[in-house]
């Protein structure tokens, strides 16, 4: 009797899952068109903005970093500056044009590839993606205030509270 019920429920579950997969694909197709449209707008904004620079607090003794080192820190491979001091990367908001351009221009990957990279680290319990701030102004403040912090902003936002370590 119980076996019969389990069998019926099992059959039902299979059908529910198959229907869910179908629905998910349909939803995905619609969502994709919106996402692609967004991505195009992002790309057209790119030409209007000035370039992106990597910054640390002016209190930090690090004066310059290589691209490989910036990559290592932002992809979680390295948790320290070359001088041995702890490095804490900070990202701009998910989906922002600045973050997209930093990912592509400095890290050499699309935002989705960076996300896939972090999902590998996250779901194996080895670490977490960097925290993020909402804007260039917030980034400036967060980096200036913390000797361990490293972030990136559009060049026109740079002031004395931070030092440019990669451009």
């Amino acid at each position: 009797m119980t076996g019969k019920i389990e069998q019926t429920v099992g059959l039902l579950l299979r059908h529910v899952l198959l229907v869910m997969l179908l629905v998910a694909f349909l939803v995905a197709v619609f969502a994709q068109s919106a996402f692609a449209a967004d991505a195009r707008t992002g790309a057209s904004n790119e030409a209007l903005n000035d370039d992106i620079v990597v910054i640390v607090s002016s209190l930090n003794t690090v004066k310059a970093l290589t691209r490989v080192r910036v990559e290592d820190i932002f992809l979680g491979r390295m948790q320290q500056f070359p001088n041995g001091q702890r490095a804490v990367p900070i990202d701009q908001a998910e989906g922002s044009a600045v973050r997209g351009r930093f990912n592509k221009g400095v890290l050499g990957h699309t935002s989705v590839q960076v996300r896939i990279h972090w999902s590998r680290i996250l779901f194996t319990g080895r670490g977490r993606p960097p925290r993020s701030v909402a804007s260039n102004e917030d980034m400036l403040q967060a980096v200036a205030a913390d000797v361990h912090a490293i972030g990136y902003i559009e060049r026109r936002f740079v002031n004395d509270s931070v030092a440019v370590v990669f451009e």
Binding site: F25, A28, V29, A31, F35, S111, V112
Partner: peptide, 10 residues
């Protein structure tokens, strides 16, 4: 593989 959304891949 197809990046449908930033957090969804088909």
């Amino acid at each position: 593989s197809w990046n449908v959304l930033p957090s969804v891949i088909a």
